[in-house]
């Protein structure tokens, strides 16, 4: 009997694009939960922080008084969930006067690399 063809995980790389600031609405939180779920299920997962999404990376965050889960704390669990490919758009940082010292994780990439990441992803979920 023929073995069923099994797709390699890397053939199905999912890209989650985080474009919104944390806390103002549920998007950032839901995006993060989606990324954690993808990772926990063993899907090859890339995360891109771009535009307002880069605010999610600023530390320290203390969301206690607004009664929300700490997004930065949750995001720092991504590698434990198997999501190690975390990318940050350089221009979005520059526009907001943020530098690598303001953010908590990830690798900063330029516009060309962002384009390549988008072009090579099998599915993109935008939050």
């Amino acid at each position: 009997m023929d073995k069923p063809a099994i797709e390699k995980p890397e053939d199905r790389a999912i890209l989650l694009v985080f474009r919104h600031a944390p806390y103002g609405n549920a998007l950032a939180r839901e995006g993060l939960e989606a990324a954690l779920a993808c990772g926990a299920m063993g899907a090859t997962t890339n995360v891109l922080y771009i535009n307002e999404g880069v605010w999610q990376l600023v530390e320290p965050q203390d969301s206690h008084a607004i009664d929300c889960k700490n997004q930065a704390a949750m995001a720092s669990a991504l590698p434990l969930y198997g999501v190690e490919a975390i990318w940050i758009d350089e221009d979005s940082l520059k526009q907001r006067n943020l530098t690598s010292t303001d953010i908590n994780a990830g690798k900063i990439i330029d516009r060309t690399q962002v384009q390549a990441l988008l072009a090579t992803s099998q599915a993109i979920l935008s939050f």
Binding site: L36, G39, A40, A73, A77, L80, Y81, G82
Partner: peptide, 15 residues
């Protein structure tokens, strides 16, 4: 305490 999450199996094993 650290991540504000209850880990499923894989992350728990890693941690």
């Amino acid at each position: 305490q650290r991540f504000a999450l209850s880990p499923p199996m894989r992350p728990l094993v890693r941690y």
